[in-house]
Design a protein around this nucleic acid. Sequence first.
DNA 1: AATGCATACAACCGCCAGCTA
DNA 2: ATAGCTGGCGGTTGTATGCAT
Length: 289
Amino acid sequence: MGRAPCCDKANVKRGPWSPEEDITLKNYVERYGTGGNWIALPQKAGLKRCGKSCRLRWLNYLRPDIKHGGFTEEEDTIICTLYKNIGSRWSVIASQLKGRTDNDVKNYWNTKLKKKILAGKINLTGHNNIVPSNNHIQPNSSSSPAMLNVSPNYLNHNFTTMPMSMDVNVKQEVSSSGMVSDVLIQYPLPELMESLEFGSSSNNNQIISSSPEVSSYSVPSFDSNFSLWWPGNGIADDDRFLMDFGFGMSYDLPSGAGASSIGNYSTNDSLLSNTSDTIPQGLYQSITN
DNA sequence: AATGCATACAACCGCCAGCTA
DNA sequence: ATAGCTGGCGGTTGTATGCAT
């Protein structure tokens, strides 16, 4: 025996919603809420619809602040990056795009984005051009004492004990002369992370961005001493990024260090001292707790 | 103008996880 | 512990619209 249906399909209306039904549902939800029970809602609201259908109609269409169509290039990039990292978890992807629903993102992916990628208009593996380096993390220095500098290589590392890949897309645009003109760093799980940027020792550590979507656009420079690209420009040449993974648990860094040792690394990945002194206390606690 | 095909988007289906009695 | 119920989710289908022939 199969599972009982959520409603009597013979007595509910199906197919496209009429404007009158939309108004009825919208008015009811705005006035009384869902009451935590979508199944009972249609009867209360006077709709001959399945509760699930009502829920879907509200979430995907009637809810305030819904955006339809017209995906921006930035949204394209976010969707592609997240899809590459977490797959078809549309609700997670949609949650990173203001006003978008999982259904919208899914439809957009299936009808347009996938084709764009196949046509080569979007590069899902743009970070592959990043210069290879074994130095995942910026060495400490006196001029910028508090930094876990994240190189593209480091960003691409898959942390095996994390719940999801940490792969972060870095998009390069290289001119004909070989100059790197733009780098976009995006975090696949932005709600779990926070990008901090630290100034030189003469400045206090300063949060410049806690944007959940994109940490920063910056023009990088190549440091031949360490064979890695620095994020740069915008604030100062020695801008650095520190990532708060925020998982509240231990995880492996490329060097095998645990969460408590996130902080400053030398070029050979050994942990330097004064970690807790150079990372804001709140963040340090959030990493180590 | 009629027809067929492609595209975009709305809606449905069925499974699963979490909650509760 | 477990059965039933519901919400949430991803995959799939249905339908309206636009475009080419």
